[in-house]
């Protein structure tokens, strides 16, 4: 062990935590305002369509800002690169029925987290692109606007499900939540959830005598 156990391992840098936090708040604002714009019952309750629309549009415009600023930081780029790369072990993990038992040593991110990362990024980019087409009607022909509306609606539905899944996994693991809040996680948690990553940072696990 290279560190005292109470200090734990550094899982997320300050820059990563800020990018995640700011983008996360914007996504929640986008989802709530989208629900009001889309659902008639909520729209009846809230009204003020032009105000809700402005909140939605400008949160969307703002969403890439923390992500692009974050890419200036080496630690954000390193985590993005980590999410990008799939190894043979990742495919094995995805196919395995017992993927959570720790038999497949997982790196910093498991394959599910990697998939969520790229699907969220791609879905977010599609929402931005289609949103821009709807927002700037003079730049594109009418049929593009109709197509963009269709794609935006269905992508939003899928993106919302992805966010729900992300939140439900996070809420079931208080240590993971501690990690994104404070940046650090206990070594024991890292060894059971991300064994390969823990070994890289803290060295091989001491022999267990059981």
């Amino acid at each position: 062990m290279t560190r005292p156990p109470e200090a734990g391992l550094l899982r997320f840098s300050r820059a990563v935590r800020w990018v995640h936090g700011v983008a996360g708040v914007l996504v929640l604002v986008l989802i709530v305002s989208a629900a009001v714009l889309y659902n008639s019952e909520l729209q009846v309750l809230v009204g003020h369509r032009p105000v809700v629309e402005a909140v939605h549009v400008w949160s969307g415009v703002a969403l890439p800002v923390p992500v692009l600023l974050g890419l200036a930081s080496r630690s954000v780029r390193a985590d993005a690169a980590e999410l990008d790369r799939f190894t043979a072990r990742d495919w094995q993990w995805l196919r395995s029925r017992t993927r959570r038992d720790g038999a497949i040593a997982v790196g910093k991110f498991n394959a599910g987290q990697k998939l969520n990362g790229s699907l969220s990024a791609g879905g977010g980019a599609v929402l931005l692109m289609t949103g821009a087409v709807m927002w700037l009607p003079d730049l594109t022909p009418l049929s593009w606007r109709t197509g963009a509306t269709l794609v935006h609606d269905w992508t939003a539905l899928a993106f919302g499900l992805l966010v729900l899944g992300h939140l439900s996994h996070a809420l079931r693991d208080p240590v993971a939540m501690l990690g994104i809040r404070t940046g650090r996680v206990p070594v024991s948690w890292a060894r059971s959830e991300h064994a390969a990553w823990a070994e890289e940072l803290a060295g091989p696990a001491p022999d267990r005598r059981d």
Binding site: R85, T87, G122, V126, T130, V133, S143, W144, G147, V151
Partner: peptide, 26 residues
Amino acid sequence: PEGAPVGRRVFLGLLGLGAAGIVGGA
């Protein structure tokens, strides 16, 4: 990091599908 850049492919693939949807969605 080792491995294939699957995340990038998923990202670009979704962007391509989205663009196709804008043009052909109507």
